[in-house]
């Protein structure tokens, strides 16, 4: 039986917490106590054995998988730099084009209405994964106040619209989805022509967003809307390649972002 005080000294030694005086005391007491000496030696061995066990590499995609699962929008609604603010700020920097202000105001009003409408929809829409169709409606007649490009899709019960808007050197894409099952959307673009500057997400808990240069990936399990803004300094029509997937059904399209 090893007395409590000696037991503590031995364990503190393993933790490296003994003072020099305590270490000296431990040495003295171990010399005269075989049981304690063996216990100490066993703990030293155990400590060395554990130190020699190497970590195992986690799965390569672990971080990616975690980020896909987190409800990224949970805290985002508090951010003051919303899309409207982004648009307004961007357009304020444009000295030459007055219509941009009109577009900004129109866009802000439109988004406000959109948010109200989406908020009233709540989570009541349902998804029935087995029907898909898609149409593209292009409207470039009114470059400032109308969408540059527009698509609608109905994919296994997941329906939605995609619109792009553009003015001078700014482009925006508005994605709206009505679903209550898993939907994955990827938006590829030429990041040399379009610089992704911001994303506004409706307050949905079951969404994850990944952004990489030239790629935005959105996974949602509920209805929601996403507004992505881009700088288009070159003013060229650099398209967005969009893919919407639910189950095995895929809807793909290309959206113009305006420009020449």
């Amino acid at each position: 039986m090893i007395e409590e005080e000696l037991l503590v000294l031995i364990n503190k030694d393993i933790d490296g917490d003994n003072t020099p005086a305590e270490s000296a005391q431990l040495r003295d007491r171990l010399e005269s106590n075989e049981e304690a000496r063996k216990y100490h030696q066993d703990l030293v061995n155990m400590s060395h054995v554990l130190k020699q066990v190497e970590d195992v590499d986690p799965p390569a995609r672990l971080r990616h998988d975690i980020m896909r699962e987190i409800p990224a929008a949970k805290y985002r609604s508090r951010e003051s730099e919303g899309f409207v603010a982004t648009i307004v700020t961007a357009f304020r920097s444009l000295r030459t084009v007055r219509p941009a202000y009109a577009f900004s105001a129109g866009m802000a009003a439109g988004i406000a209405v959109l948010m109200v409408v989406l908020g009233s929809l709540g989570d009541t829409e349902s998804l029935r994964p087995s029907q898909v169709s898609g149409t593209i409606v292009e409207d470039r007649a009114a470059p400032v106040t109308s969408p540059t490009d527009r698509e609608e899709f109905d994919l296994n019960g997941v329906s939605g619209t995609l619109e792009t808007w553009s003015s001078v050197d700014l482009s925006a894409a508005n994605l709206k989805i009505t679903a209550d099952g898993a939907v994955a959307v990827s938006i590829e673009f030429d990041d040399a022509a379009l610089a992704f500057t911001g994303l506004e997400i409706s307050d949905e808990p079951s969404v994850s967003v990944d952004t990489d240069p030239g790629l935005i990936e959105i996974v949602t399990r509920a209805s929601g809307s996403w507004i992505m803004s881009f700088d288009n300094h070159a003013g060229v029509d650099s398209p967005l390649e969009v893919s919407v997937r639910t189950g095995s059904a895929i809807f793909e399209c290309r959206l113009s972002t305006g420009g020449d």
């Binding site: 970590d55 672990l62 980020m67 987190i70 805290y75 609604s77 508090r78 951010e79």
Partner: peptide
């Protein structure tokens, strides 16, 4: 992260996932 920057959380994941 609490201000809406999910990218900040990704740094924490990278830092501690192992």
């Amino acid at each position: 992260c609490l201000k809406g920057n999910a990218g900040a959380f990704e740094i924490l994941v990278e830092r501690y996932q192992r």
